[in-house]
């Protein structure tokens, strides 16, 4: 593949369990992910709205989506995507 997703910003609705540290660690354990930042936006009785920022090399959105579903979370929207050519060195 010529292009790869380097950065994703997602609006996610997740259940309150697992808590944020476990949720973030699980996402970070996915292949090609170098770092994950999860910020709490809104909290409800059973759910949390969170902003997930993922950085890595050649991030697979389908894998991310599946992992989230397995942990009781759904992607509401993809708010930002950074795609770069494999050999690109520019910093967007």
């Amino acid at each position: 593949m010529q292009h790869s997703i380097r950065r994703l910003v997602l609006d996610v609705l997740k259940l309150r369990d697992p808590p944020l540290p476990e949720f973030a660690s699980t996402l970070c354990s996915l292949p090609n992910i170098e770092g994950v930042k999860v910020s709490l936006v809104e909290i409800d009785q059973n759910t949390e709205s969170v902003k997930v920022i993922m950085e890595g090399n050649n991030i697979n959105l389908d894998t991310v989506q599946k992992m989230m579903k397995d942990h009781g979370a759904v992607i509401h929207s993809v708010d930002e995507v950074v795609v770069q050519k494999k050999d690109s060195s520019i910093n967007l």
Partner: peptide
């Protein structure tokens, strides 16, 4: 069932 209603998605095969 309550959680599925909260998240508007089925939890089939999920951790929960």
């Amino acid at each position: 069932k309550d959680l599925e209603e909260s998240i508007l998605s089925d939890l089939e095969g999920s951790l929960q």
